[in-house]
Amino acid sequence: MKPNFFDMTVHDVDKAREFFGNVFDWSFEKLESADRYYLIKAGPDSEDGINGGIGVVGGARIAEGRPLTQVTIPVTDLESYIAKVKSAGGYVLEPRLAISGVGWYATCAEPGGLIFGLLQADPDAA
Rank of each mutant, 00 (worst) to 15 (best):
K2P: 05
P3V: 14
N4E: 09
F6P: 02
F6E: 01
D7C: 06
D7M: 00
D7T: 01
D7F: 01
M8D: 04
T9Y: 06
H11Y: 11
D12Y: 04
V13Y: 03
K15T: 08
A16E: 05
R17A: 13
R17P: 01
E18Q: 15
F20R: 00
G21H: 04
N22S: 11
N22K: 12
V23P: 01
V23S: 07
F24T: 00
F24L: 05
D25W: 04
D25S: 15
W26R: 07
W26A: 12
S27K: 05
E29M: 14
E29L: 09
K30W: 02
K30P: 05
L31M: 13
L31R: 05
S33K: 05
A34M: 10
D35P: 05
R36S: 11
Y38D: 03
Y38E: 03
L39A: 15
I40D: 00
A42E: 02
A42L: 11
P44F: 00
P44M: 08
D45K: 14
D45V: 14
D45A: 13
S46E: 10
S46C: 08
E47D: 07
G49A: 13
G49S: 14
I50W: 00
N51C: 09
G52D: 02
V56R: 04
V57S: 10
V57L: 07
G58N: 04
G59H: 00
R61F: 03
A63E: 00
A63P: 02
E64Q: 11
E64G: 09
R66Q: 10
Q70Y: 12
Q70P: 01
V71T: 08
T72N: 07
T72H: 02
T72I: 11
T72P: 00
I73T: 10
P74K: 09
L78P: 09
S80W: 03
Y81D: 10
Y81H: 09
A83K: 03
V85E: 06
K86D: 05
K86Y: 07
K86T: 14
S87D: 12
S87F: 06
A88G: 11
G90H: 06
Y91D: 12
Y91S: 14
Y91M: 10
V92I: 15
L93A: 12
E94I: 08
R96K: 15
R96C: 15
A98R: 10
A98Y: 07
I99S: 09
S100L: 13
G101V: 13
V102S: 09
G103M: 14
G103S: 14
T107Q: 03
C108N: 05
C108H: 02
E110D: 15
P111C: 11
P111H: 05
G112M: 12
G112E: 03
G112T: 08
G112C: 13
G113T: 08
G113E: 06
L114C: 09
I115P: 04
G117A: 15
L119M: 13
Q120T: 11
P123L: 15
P123K: 11
D124I: 12
D124L: 14
